[in-house]
Nucleic acid binder design. Sequence first.
DNA 1: CTGAAAGCGCTTACAG
DNA 2: CTGAAAGCGCTTACAG
Lengths: 344, 344
Amino acid sequence: MEDHPQSTLVDVAREAGVSRATVDRVINGRPNVKAKTVAKVRDAMARLHYRPDPLAAGLARRSRHRFCFVLPTGTNAFMQDLATQIATMGDWLARNRAFVDRVEVDVFDPQALATALDELPRAYDGVAVVALDDPLVRASIDRLVADDVPVVTLISDVPASRRLRFVGIDNSAAGRTAAMLLGRFLAGQKGAVGVLVGSLSLRDHMERCFGFSQLLGREFPGLRILPVVEMRDDRDLAETAVRDLLKAHSDLVALYNAGAGNQGVAAALKAARKTPRLVFVAHELTALSRELLLAGVADAVIAQNPGHEARSAARLLLSRGLDEAIIAEQERIRIDIFLRENLP
Amino acid sequence: MEDHPQSTLVDVAREAGVSRATVDRVINGRPNVKAKTVAKVRDAMARLHYRPDPLAAGLARRSRHRFCFVLPTGTNAFMQDLATQIATMGDWLARNRAFVDRVEVDVFDPQALATALDELPRAYDGVAVVALDDPLVRASIDRLVADDVPVVTLISDVPASRRLRFVGIDNSAAGRTAAMLLGRFLAGQKGAVGVLVGSLSLRDHMERCFGFSQLLGREFPGLRILPVVEMRDDRDLAETAVRDLLKAHSDLVALYNAGAGNQGVAAALKAARKTPRLVFVAHELTALSRELLLAGVADAVIAQNPGHEARSAARLLLSRGLDEAIIAEQERIRIDIFLRENLP
DNA sequence: CTGAAAGCGCTTACAG
DNA sequence: CTGAAAGCGCTTACAG
């Protein structure tokens, strides 16, 4: 059992022959200390292997962290899950003197999102936003950052903005993953593949499509990708879209839904009663997609973990406020693949 | 922007008309307080929405947490990764006044592991152990727990023991997942399937085999599972095993390695140059398995995240020491599926 | 059964 | 440029 002796700031002060206030100045890089004194203190710190206690510092500073999470309105199951996860981490955050507010905005309206961001009190110590890649939104994010409010983008990125970081998955890779599974599950079958998205002006949906087409085209030449259908993540529009695809293409063998609205897709597939079943790959683990997987309607679900993403966003903002290092590996959001067998 | 006013213990003392020491007694359930006083304090706490500050409490208590992680010796890449991840969280732990030591033992020797556990200083505030499901080991774990040292099992469980919790994946489900992927990738092809493990007396390997056979037998009747080969996670033994399988079964179409030693499997597959390629599913994401995936030698890798597991074990032990709640969802270890396309 | 006082390791005015 | 003193929110002996 190893020893872990901790020397304190007082020990360093004594060793260096200065006061605690001076040691504090050196540790925190505050001004007005003679270079010679700085050196003395640094030496003492090194000799004693001093490691400051950030918890005590936080207490003395009475520091609090207020964060704001900006989420899209609506009943999308994934976003609801995300909201729940944010609420769930409240206790943990409170223990770290951190608090999060939530704001909801229409995700399909860049102007509304930009305004919401502009109206955010600059007293916030950090903002996490499910963004829209739009010049207006980008400008609003940059204004926040200019006002010294760190911003992380969540789920959907605005790469050109000055956000601290993007918390989400590589959506092109997610699309490629979907294509690989779908292609291999079809195993040589030839035919048409339908692709649905909420909107091609949503960066994440667009990137999934891109990755999907890219890989399918390269690896599975027997499969023909049909023109992408936008259905605004609406289950009725999705249902109609799938019905139309089935009607128009008798050789339809598979479906990839890069957006929400799986309820509609499932309804159309059920009504069609095609044999052999179409291969169907969807996104996000929800009560519904889980059911579809168990029922054998969906073959695979590509997912990201909203709990992980919420905590990661909070940790990043917190680490910024506390000036602490992060564990990079912990903040990498993975592309999850779920089959019926590895459902959590 | 919401307000988050915090009342302190002093506020509660004033409101209840008692001293801080008494409030402290009530908060922490210490004895020697009149029921009436307890009630007064409770009321005041409720009125002020008082929430104790665990960081300040930790400071005043000068509490430190010493944990010990007991890992298998050897050069197994996954275990090395686990060791690295444990080291990586040192900084974060230190900030929380926690420290971890590491002990290494031969994983194939129950007696050695039991002795190592018995010899662990009872001053530890928690132990995480990559266990062996053996009566000797179980008894040693139970002795630790009896001595008031909480234990979590890591990666491989001892379900009958009194361990606080198991940090790892559901290995039967992992085996089923492997079977599902392998079966679907074969897509109707008939033939023999080879299965390798390190040892059937390792609970995790055994459970993977079990899940694998169960699902393959049920869902893919065209595939014939060959008798399981034990190769002690040794690359040379693994290579020989695969060579033998290839020689003995001309209809071998797929391979599942539930253990380590993928290097040997890959070498044998390479030497055989069979067309069409065998479908090969392996476990754990390592430098090698990643390469095999990229090279198209392995079709899928079933994995667990050692960084997540190390942090989860530490969080569980820490939450025990601090008497704090955990976020259950965060401590669930997922069965990861990696294809070439979603490699991190 | 209860409280006054000192202290945990650091920071913050304030004085010089 | 530097230090003495008070304080962050809680706990710990000790006294009564």
